[in-house]
Design a protein around this nucleic acid. Structure first.
Length: 225
DNA sequence: AATTAATCCAACCGCGAGGGG
DNA sequence: TCCCCTCGCGGTTGGATTAAT
């Protein structure tokens, strides 16, 4: 059989962290730093494995974490980086101070992948999906009742008008870039907004920063919601 | 108001890399 | 060179929350 899950040994705790556990871990690391993750739970008085402590610290407790929704500029950058790096989430996350690889991975899997599919792009290759292989195109939806179009924006697509971007050809990354620019963005402004956002401390400010614009994907004609 | 479906995301698992003995 | 240990990464799961019926 496979190796034993590390936390099942010695009756160590698993699952969601309590406030008390968070406090113990945070206090210990801020006071002592991290020499060896295996020793951290022992020294901090936690019934957790080192691996669990490391994950909790990196993904949730680190003081330099920026929380809040991803901006449009960030999403654009993630897509560009993913086209070059593939699923190397830690490498991608390295370009986003305050964001974790887990956060970016989750966002990719839950949001960006869907948007790319909707736009006729293969999220893995970033190339246009063959028309007859794209389950999100109108023809496919109309002809296949059982298509996985029961997702929220899939439902919109079935009845609503075909978006402009799908009328002529399947859009490429360049097309999406042009769409964004035509919505009043330029690359200089884009990166300026992004940099400004990185300097904001409060999640609310982060969300409210000038780069936080979803106008392309929130266009009612595109059926996102 | 109750139930079901969809979505989100924190946390887990297993593997590979790298270092030390 | 081999073995063991630790760390970091990427894929996946499952519980909580939200939306739809």
């Amino acid at each position: 059989m496979g190796r034993q899950p590390c936390c099942e040994k010695n009756g160590l705790r698993r699952g969601p962290w309590t406030i008390d556990e968070d406090h113990k871990l945070m206090t210990f690391i801020l006071n002592n730093g991290i020499q060896c993750w295996r020793l951290v739970p022992k020294l901090a008085g936690l019934m957790r494995c080192g691996k669990s402590c490391r994950l909790r610290w990196i993904n949730y407790l680190r003081p330099d974490l920026k929380r809040g929704a991803f901006t449009e500029a960030e999403e654009d950058m993630i897509i560009q980086l993913h086209s070059r790096l593939g699923n190397r989430w830690s490498k991608i996350a390295a370009q986003f101070p305050g964001r974790t690889d887990n956060e970016i991975k989750n966002h990719w899997n839950t949001r960006i992948k869907k948007k790319m599919k909707f736009l006729g792009l293969d999220p893995r290759t970033h190339n246009p999906i063959e028309q007859n292989h794209n389950p999100y195109t109108i023809n496919k939806i109309e002809n296949d009742e059982s298509a996985s179009s029961r997702s929220s924006f899939g439902n919109h697509m079935i009845k609503e008008e075909k978006p402009d971007i799908l009328n002529d050809k399947t859009p490429t990354i360049e097309d999406i870039g042009l769409m964004m620019m035509s919505h009043g963005h330029d690359h200089h402004h884009h990166h300026e907004s992004l940099n400004t956002c990185f300097e904001l401390e409060l999640p609310q400010n982060w969300i409210d920063c000038p780069g936080f614009q979803w106008d392309v994907f929130n266009d009612p004609g595109l059926g996102f919601h």
